[in-house]
Simulated scan of single mutants.
Amino acid sequence: MVKPSLRKEMAQQAVANRQVSIRLACAAFSVSESCYRYQALLNDENAEIAERLVELTELHSDWGFGQCFLYLRNVKGQSWNHKRVYRIYCELALNLRIKPKRRLKRQAPEPLKEPIKANQIWSMDFMHDQLSDGRCFRLFNVIDDYRREGLAIEAGFSLPTIRVIRVLNQLLEWRETPTVIRCDNGPEFISHEFTAWAKKHDIRIEYIQPGKPQQNAYIERANRTIRYSWLSKNLFDTLEEVQDYATQWLWFYNHERPHRANGGRPPLMVA
C-alpha cells in the first residue's frame, strides 16, 4: 500500500517529466486533484518545532517525547498540538529505544505515604560516583516529597553524620521544620547523633524496611534523574566541579525541568 504523499509525489513527477495533464495523472495514481494542489501552510513553524526538539534531545539525551513536549508546553508556553509535535518527533527519528525488562513477581510493598502539603515529609539518600582520577565521592540528596522539590545536593569524599546534620541545619534556616524525614537504615541515619538531633527538632525519623527501596520511592526516583541527567554524562576532575554543577542543576530541576508528578510542571511552578 503506497501512502497518499508518495502517490502525490509520483503524480507530480509524471506531470513534470512526461507532460501528462494533472487530471490524467491524478486518475492514474488514485490521487484527488485537491490533494495534488494542496500546499502545507505550516512549514516554517514545523521547522521551528523540529529545531527545538533537536536542541532539547541533544542537551538532555535522557528525555523522551513526553518530557520534551511538557517542557515546550509548560515552561516555554508553546501551544503546539501534541500530535503534531509527536509526528515531527518521529520523523526526526528521535524516539528513545527502551530495552524491555523481564517482569519479576514481587511481594506487594507497603503503601507509600503521600504528603498533602509542603514540608510534611522530606526524603534523603546517598549516591556514589568517581572523579576522573578514580577517587570515589558521595552525594547526599534531600527532597521535599510533596512537590518533588530538590532541597539539597551535597558532595563530599566523606559524608559522616555531622555533615548530614550540618546540611539539614542549613535547610532549616530557610525552610519550615518537616514533620517526618524518610530514610534508609544507613549508619549515618541510625547514629545517636542523628537521632538526638531529630528529637531536639521534634522530627520523626521514618526508616524503611531493609531491602525495600520502593518504600523510599520519591528519593530513589530523584537519584535516577540525577544519575541519567548529568552524573553519568560528565567526568569531573575535582569535588568543587561536582558541587558547582550540582548546585546549577538543582536550580534547573526546580525551576525549568518538567515533572509528571506535578502535572508536567517544574516543582516551583506548582502553587
Rank of each mutant, 00 (worst) to 15 (best):
A93E: 11
E206H: 12
T225P: 01
D144H: 04
V142W: 08
N17Y: 06
W230K: 10
F137A: 06
D184I: 04
Q209G: 00
W174P: 05
M269P: 02
L56T: 07
H255E: 08
Q39S: 08
R103N: 14
Q170F: 11
L168T: 00
C68S: 03
R87G: 03
G156L: 10
C183H: 13
L168F: 03
R7N: 08
P178W: 00
S34D: 07
N234E: 15
L172R: 02
N95Y: 07
T57V: 12
Q107P: 01
Y146E: 05
D133Q: 06
D184H: 06
S30P: 04
A118L: 15
Q12N: 13
R102K: 14
H60A: 03
R224L: 14
P266L: 13
T179P: 03
G77R: 11
R175I: 03
I143C: 00
G134F: 07
S34E: 04
Y71I: 05
V15H: 00
W80H: 08
S34N: 05
K113F: 14
A222Y: 08
G134N: 03
I22L: 08
T57R: 15
F252P: 01
R257G: 04
K113S: 11
L6H: 04
A108V: 15
T247H: 14
P266M: 05
E9M: 09
G134D: 07
S158P: 02
W122P: 09
P213T: 07
I121L: 02
N262P: 10
E114Q: 15
L59E: 15
Q120N: 02
C26W: 04
E33D: 13
P4I: 08
L41F: 07
A25D: 00
L159I: 14
R87V: 10
S229T: 11
Q209K: 14
G150C: 09
L171V: 10
L231F: 11
D202Y: 14
E45A: 07
R138D: 01
Q248D: 04
E149L: 01
L6Q: 10
R221H: 12
E58D: 06
R204K: 10
H128K: 02
R97M: 13
E149V: 04
A217Q: 03
A155C: 10
I226H: 01
I98A: 11
K3V: 05
N141Q: 02
H82Q: 15
F236G: 00
D62C: 09
S61G: 06
